[in-house]
Write a protein that binds this DNA or RNA. Structure first.
Lengths: 338, 338
DNA sequence: CTGTTAGCGCTTTCAG
DNA sequence: CTGAAAGCGCTAACAG
């Protein structure tokens, strides 16, 4: 079934008794001035006929789509929130954001999405820096579409125009300090290699934080997927003197740990202390409440869109930082509060 | 900065020494056969030049975009998951899904997104049936874009071609039965008017389930946002004999209740029983685990896309149900398990 | 099997 | 201030 024909400027032009160029001027171009009378006629005709600009035709004609492509690993939790905020910011800037999920970190899907986005001739791209290998990334840059990375550390300058990264390392480092302050003598980072780059950042930060205290502090790193959490916690508390401090990969992992701890009837913060990341619904509403790091979504989104737009509108080469670091904000709750 | 010019079929045609029509045939049209030799030449040229089809030009020319627009209230939890699955199914069917969030349930944003989607000339629309009033919806139908609703009950036939709804009412009804089976003599539904239509369904189901038992069962309905949960639970248990059964709006609300219960050191399932909906990460990993209703995302997504595609490809008017009901699956955990 | 040609709907000089 | 006309890149008859 072919689509019913939509109203075009031709019809509007006829109805208004002017040329199509004039209609285009009045309706879709701000800059050009027309007589009040013409404007009125055209707008009236357009209104009555239910005219709706054809984005494809416009884009084709001006070689600009006002569309930004976004590729994130998924649409839940952090990624979903981020996508929402980016959509808002893009809209505020007069752009439209096309959101794609790479289905949990699948490089093939990433590549495919990238391809689709390119075929749509998006003006710019925002990607959560990850699985997509060098080639895929190259192919973007080669075609000249500016790329901003979210949480992409140390990417070569010729591939992305920059990145906006959350300060995970710093947060984890400071988590260590908090835990030591609260009396912990053993620190443990429970990571998640599902998200490789991010896990790396957090591990780095944890290491930096823990090693500050030298040999007076025991610390270790484990992977949550390979863990029987109850057994692990039990063992941990047998091996060491309380309180034990845990830095969790995020609030989801933290919840698992919390549950294991609750089953073992461990006491927060006397025996165990726990810090998550994301300040999710989970952290806020669990029992006990999980200390966590809040993410300034809106700010991160603004930064990313700005970076892209600066490039797109060819702003004077500001002395802009290539890698922007967005600091997280600590929210303390019962898992650490003494 | 104008975008660098991309390779077009003209250039590919020149390089391959054939006409542009032939290039188009080989590259973008499956049906038309060409000689092996021609195919080889064209594909080689395209490959070497890095040709990438311009979606806009193609769409404009054939009056078909192979794009489906999706509007959901948000991109977290259920909605995010749904969007991901729809994206997968759309792709499997050769379509591309443009995902939009209406930022909570904002009718203005909904309207705006709808407008954008129409301007893109999407072939079809999928909307989570809600805030958007009659007018907005009308304007879609008027323009002839087929619309499938997700969780949209009782919409007029001339507006949407159908809907795919989750069996919330039935789930809530059965939740009541489960709770009574487990010994509850008092039932309570803790709803959330944030999502009006959905809350209605759940409340209806709850009422139907509870009233089955006549006067031997006390039941009541409250709104979670107006509730001091601890105080409420305490009061509930003072007023009635245990166990009290609670049907929560979803797992998020359930978590809040769970936390309140834990603070009061209530015993599951002896004093309190609790059932959520969504079978979220939360329900699975909380302590105690929350009994919940699992959502067949993949199935729901398939149904929705199929419905749309049947219309788009003008399938023989199957004796298809207009409103498909997708049943949820009960997963029992410690909050009810005796 | 391949090429010619007329659009798709809109933007954008460039004359009037 | 307005309009004629030349595209944007691709597809779809229709001839050859």
């Amino acid at each position: 079934m072919s689509k019913p024909k939509q109203v075009t400027i031709v019809e509007v032009a006829e109805a208004a008794g002017v040329s199509i160029a004039t209609v285009s001027n009045v309706l879709n171009r701000g800059g050009i001035r027309s007589s009040k009378e013409t404007i009125r006629k055209v707008e009236l005709a357009a209104e009555q006929l239910g005219y709706r600009r054809n984005t494809m035709a416009a884009g084709l004609s001006r070689n600009k789509t006002f569309e930004i492509g976004l590729i994130v690993p998924g649409l839940t939790s952090y990624y979903g929130q981020l996508a929402e905020h980016l959509q808002i910011e893009a809209h505020n800037a007069g752009y439209h954001l096309s959101v794609f999920s790479s289905g949990g970190f699948d490089p093939d899907i990433e590549r495919r999405n990238l391809e689709v986005l390119q075929q749509r001739r998006v003006d710019g791209l925002i990607c959560h820096g990850l699985a997509m290998g060098f080639e895929s990334t190259r192919s973007i840059v080669n075609s000249g579409t500016p790329l901003v990375l979210i949480n992409g550390w140390d990417w070569p300058e010729d591939i992305s125009i920059g990145s906006v990264n959350l300060g995970f390392a710093e947060a984890c480092k400071q988590s260590c300090q908090v835990l030591v302050d609260r009396g912990c003598t053993v620190l443990c980072y429970v990571g998640s290699k599902v998200s490789k780059v991010i896990d790396e950042q957090r591990r780095m930060g944890f290491m930096a934080g823990a090693s500050q205290y030298g040999s007076q502090l025991v610390h270790e790193i484990v992977e949550h997927r390979e863990l029987d959490m109850e057994a692990y916690l039990k063992d941990l508390l047998q091996r060491h003197s309380a309180p034990v401090g845990i830095v969790a990969f995020d609030d989801h992992v933290a919840l698992k740990l919390l549950t294991a701890a609750n089953k073992l009837q461990l006491n927060f913060p006397k025996q165990l202390q726990l810090i998550g990341i994301n300040n999710d619904y989970i952290a806020i509403n669990s029992f006990p409440g999980i200390s966590s790091w809040d993410i300034p979504y809106s700010y991160q989104a603004k930064m990313a869109i700005n970076k892209l737009l600066n490039k797109l509108t060819n702003q004077p080469e500001t002395d802009e930082v290539r890698e922007i670091e967005v600091p997280l904000v600590f929210i303390e709750r019962e898992t650490t509060k003494i």
